[in-house]
Design a protein around this nucleic acid. Structure first.
Lengths: 135, 135, 135, 135
DNA sequence: GTGGTCTAGACCACC
DNA sequence: GTGGTCTAGACCACA
């Protein structure tokens, strides 16, 4: 797994690490039980304070993305959101709307937005739909 | 225009105000030349320091959402993004992908996501596409 | 980096700071990744409220001149204007015309103006022109 | 003389009026002894507070651009800057440098800047150079 | 009365 | 210790 930190970004460093792991999982590049680098090793590699890496790992564990086994390291966990259907819908719909509002103000055309959405959607390895005939 | 502030949110108060104005513009509830509440009035109404409101207005002005004129007030501006096409596409695509990654980890199905996206898209008043046959 | 504030000037203090940083970048005195003084340190040095410095830094960040990272400091960014060609041309042409009108009313001769323009132009470190044979 | 006020601009209304008169003088559209509209008339025409127009006229008189004859109206004055050569040079050079710095940060090429400068220069009616052979 | 600027001082997230 | 946010309150330019 290759991490890259963008120092020009406003996004906190620890958050960038979380983002990248989540993205790689969604892309299918990281799968269950894959081992992440140790905190120290990654800190050395990215030339970053180990506390920052530790914070990223802590957050990912909290989100259920990884499990850390003391002495063994950190591993990608089984996806299992414990949030209710309704809460999940609310979170995602709200975020979708915010992106759309942003696009509106950037005067992006509706069709471009649809196209970009579909293109982005294709990138990620969604599991086959349950209870749906096709997809 | 009705504002609501969620003090529990991580999102800064001034940003919440910006979000709401931008949303209302995109929904068509606010249109060009509509007058926003005065800084002091809105501050009193929301029980917030006037400087915080002023900060929100300043940010919106910088984004080109409104124009402020001392002595007159703040008004919805003509929307006209100064950003180049490439930058706009990059901003939106990146944000779309982040929402999709988030949805993936919440185990939202691809079809639900598509449906929510379309539903959200319908809410906002995009201008008719230029040079496209259908819309 | 040496800052000087003119309290007699109409130009806001925070804007004077922005001006000076931008000038030093254009002169080549400040280059990418150079660290700016911390907000508190500069505030102490100039005997100015830290919020005023912070405002200057915030504005520069929005203009893409610097990037600020809490816990690390503020750094000169890679310059990369997000604005479209047309907007950039409009901004600069308008400002050039205003200076010329000003010069006209001060009864400056056209030749003096040309000379001063060229002399000023030589001071700054423009990158070599892309795709042009000479320059 | 046609005035237009841009409400979207940050520039104060009274300043916009001054700008336009100065520009028209430099363009040769307004010459010595031309009569400006009365304060009341212009205020009515632009749908603006008469105080604002009065302020613009007051400033122009102070700058020596117009002379107001009570009861008769306001007239374009003879250009005659009483500032010393050195002061004038300092004012203009400083402003030229600021535009150039701005252009630098917008990543405008030096050649474009030269071209725009020349094009702008041609627009205005500079008087023939004194003591210079050609112009 | 409008927004803009500046000061003073508190608290928080990030590194 | 870094910058970011928010509050409180003063003064100024603009309309």
């Amino acid at each position: 797994m290759q991490f890259t930190i963008d120092n020009a970004s406003n996004r906190p460093v620890y958050q960038q690490i979380v983002d990248q792991v989540k993205r790689d999982v969604a892309l299918g590049r990281l799968v269950r039980d894959d081992k992440l680098p140790t905190v120290r090793r990654l800190a050395a590699q990215l030339v970053i304070n180990p506390n920052t890496i530790a914070k990223a790992y802590r957050q990912m564990e909290q989100e259920g993305i990884i499990t850390t086994k003391p002495g063994a390291g950190a591993f990608i966990a089984l996806l299992d959101s414990n949030l209710s259907e309704i809460v999940r819908a609310r979170i995602i719909c709200e975020r979708l709307e915010m992106v759309i509002v942003e696009a509106f103000h950037l005067q992006v055309q509706k069709e471009s937005l649809r196209e970009w959405f579909e293109k982005a959607l294709e990138k990620f390895k969604f599991s086959p739909e349950k209870g749906l005939k096709n997809e």
